[in-house]
Simulated assay, not measured.
Amino acid sequence: MVSPFFAIGNVVVGNNITARARAMAWYMEKSLHGFQTITDGCAFEIDNVIHKKSNRKLTAEALVEAYTPSKAESLRFGSLFKERDIEFGTIRQDDELTVIAKTKNGIITGKELENMTAKQVATHIRNTFPSVSVVNKFEFEIKSICTSATCHGSANYKFQIGDEKVTTKMRSYRDNECQAETMNGDELQSLTNEYLPSETFLDSLHETPYSVERAKTYLFRKILKPSEYKKNYLTSWKNSQAFPGCTVESARLLRECSLSQFTFQTHDQMKSWEREQKYLINKYGQSYETFFTNDDGTINYQLMIDSIDTAIRAGNRNFKSTIKKHKYYNAARDYEEHPEFQCLLMVRANLDIRYGRKLVTGKNDSSEE
Rank of each mutant, 00 (worst) to 15 (best):
S250G: 13
Q342I: 07
T98A: 10
I100F: 14
I86L: 06
E164Y: 06
N127C: 10
V11R: 10
V212M: 05
F341Q: 03
Y284V: 04
E139Q: 08
R84T: 11
H51G: 02
S131R: 00
S258W: 04
N294L: 01
I50C: 03
P4R: 04
I281G: 08
T90I: 12
M183F: 05
F292I: 09
S307M: 07
Y335T: 05
T266V: 00
Q120Y: 02
E369N: 13
G89D: 15
N105T: 11
K230T: 15
F35C: 08
Y218F: 15
F341W: 11
K230Y: 07
A23Q: 12
E340W: 02
C146P: 02
Q241Y: 11
G162H: 05
R357G: 11
D47C: 07
T298R: 02
V347T: 03
K324Y: 14
Q241P: 09
H326E: 11
L359M: 12
Y67W: 11
K225L: 13
A349V: 07
N350H: 03
T290P: 01
T37S: 11
T98Y: 08
S144A: 06
L345Y: 07
N239R: 08
M28S: 09
Q36S: 15
K327L: 14
V99G: 11
G315F: 08
G356I: 00
K57S: 15
L97S: 14
T39V: 13
T200E: 02
E337M: 09
E114S: 09
Y329W: 05
K320Q: 06
R313L: 14
G162V: 06
I125D: 12
L219M: 04
G89K: 04
I100L: 13
N316L: 10
Y284T: 01
K271A: 12
S307W: 08
I91E: 15
E194L: 06
M304K: 06
C146H: 05
P4M: 04
A332G: 11
P226T: 05
Q277V: 06
R171D: 10
Q302E: 14
T182P: 00
D295F: 12
